[in-house]
Nucleic acid binder design. Structure first.
Lengths: 283, 283
DNA sequence: CTGCAACGATACCCACCGGGTATCGGCATC
DNA sequence: GATGCCGATACCCGGTGGGTATCGTTGCAG
């Protein structure tokens, strides 16, 4: 009986649905079913009654649910006390320049509420490094947008946004309700500086190599659209100045807002930050 | 932070010695060192001060020791309550015919004290199956003697006994203080019935194929020595009738008293039984 | 001062297990 | 009786938790 298994059990007991519990636990359903089965073997009794009508707790399962919640709470308190004793105090979060979305606000509030003693340091970065200095060790965790080179990193998807093209409001295409990449013809696309992650560069160029002005921050992108007739891709849902318009692109993979950290990073604050971030972005 | 890791930590904190803690945990020292190191990384602080003079707890380690003990106690209570709710009630223990040693008595007492609600059923077996019917599912756990075929079984060594040869008291060799197998010349050795585990058979024949009368229980072995001049090996320390004498054999691997259970057996009572057995045999 | 013993750390290997995907089977609904 | 839902099963793979062998440091004995 390990704490991880009990967390799985509580998730299933609360959802009363293996598939949903697996989603909540960020895993797939089969290993979750197996883990519960093993726990049942260890307990010597079935914990859930599986019927076509749905999953329900058995009496033994109900006992374990109470006990497991109490034990997991206890474990959380242990962790908090050890961190306090260890003086763990700082978490540096990297944020991509344009990431001022409501999820991030909820996240900041929720984190401050649950970890009042932890000092969060924010490092705001431009668009040229999608990992916000993660590889260089400048931040512990980054709130950013995929895709980019993921080697030696671990990602947790928080949300997806449809992607659209940003045009001058007086552009003929701006009246169209939706566009395909091919509709944009041979317009110029803005570029990131040399050395930028190629996967990231390619994504914002609609998946192909392009030419155009070099940009570093969101403001420069908007200026490039206004002044150069450059095509700019952007996740939809942001406010734009009146001179610009955004039209959904229906043949672009949606943009994934993710939390990223260095694979194997042992910073003890990362895990709980991720949990809170996931919850905050789930609304 | 998992319960297993905390058990490791508590063991080291109590022994203040990695090697001894590893022995107590029935593992080797390197993986224990590594587990503690990982726990320290997770906690964000060193838990032990390693100095040539010895290992001591750091202040953070002292905090965790208190917390970990409380959490592990809590986990034990959870387990007990779930077992009670599940109505887990019976453990069948196989005992080799001759295993009436003081360790088994202490074990029985200790187990009854800590698990008063569990019904222990004893199955006494003859010498022909060293696993006491474990493979056939007749028992959950066997207290027996190695060596035997261990495939698909898990062993926990409880004690070792030197092995000696049992002779008629009037045998010339009986006056010798110690013997080697070669000293026994071409005497006959008793055999177990056809189908007996070959490793087991070979061990009690001094490591070689032999011939002699077939025996099934201890009493038959003794009779075979008295009446046939057969050589009989036996762990030392047991009482013998006055007509028989035991002489240590210095070139025999000692006999290992072990607890055995089927690998992967999910019976929830096995683990705690093993822990209690280990403690009982340690005096 | 020079073996030597003690002991934790390191290097490296292997089996197992906790993840994954693909698919099945049973049941309900239409 | 086709279809869709959902938990179970089968099977695969990489990481991790075990193992052994050995090292480096330190204290001690001769």
């Amino acid at each position: 009986m390990e704490l991880r298994t009990l967390r799985y059990f509580v998730a299933v007991a609360e959802e009363l649905h293996f598939g949903r519990a697996a989603t909540r636990l960020h895993m797939s359903q089969p290993p979750l079913s197996r883990a519960i089965k093993q726990l049942e073997a260890e307990a010597g009794a079935l914990l859930f009654a599986r019927s076509p009508a749905g999953v329900t707790l058995t009496p033994v399962g109900a006992v374990l649910l109470d006990e497991a919640r109490a034990l997991l709470d206890h474990a959380d308190r242990v962790r908090a006390r050890v961190f306090a004793a260890a003086g763990v105090a700082t978490l540096t979060v990297g944020i991509l320049g344009d990431s001022t979305d409501p999820g991030a606000t909820r996240l900041a509030d929720a984190y401050r509420r649950s970890h009042p003693d932890i000092d969060i340091r924010i490092r705001d970065t431009d668009l040229t490094d999608p990992t916000c200095g993660l590889r260089a060790g400048l931040v512990d965790i980054a709130l950013t947008r995929a895709p980019f080179d993921e080697t030696a990193l671990t990602l947790r998807e928080l949300r997806t946004d449809p992607v659209g093209v940003v045009l001058r409001a007086d552009d003929p295409l701006a009246r169209r309700g939706r566009l395909r990449r091919a509709d944009l013809g041979d317009r110029r696309w803005f570029q990131f500086p040399r050395g930028t992650d190629p996967i990231w560069q390619s994504y914002w160029n609609g998946g192909e190599p392009r030419e155009g002005p070099v940009v570093r921050v969101v403001q420069e992108c908007l200026q490039a659209v206004l002044w150069n007739g450059t095509v700019g891709l952007a996740p939809l849902g942001h406010d734009l100045p009146a001179e610009l318009a955004a039209v959904p692109l229906i043949d672009m993979a949606p943009s994934r807002v993710v939390a990223v950290w260095n694979k194997g990073d042992t910073n003890p604050l990362i895990r709980s930050f991720i949990e809170i971030a996931t919850a905050a972005y789930r609304h």
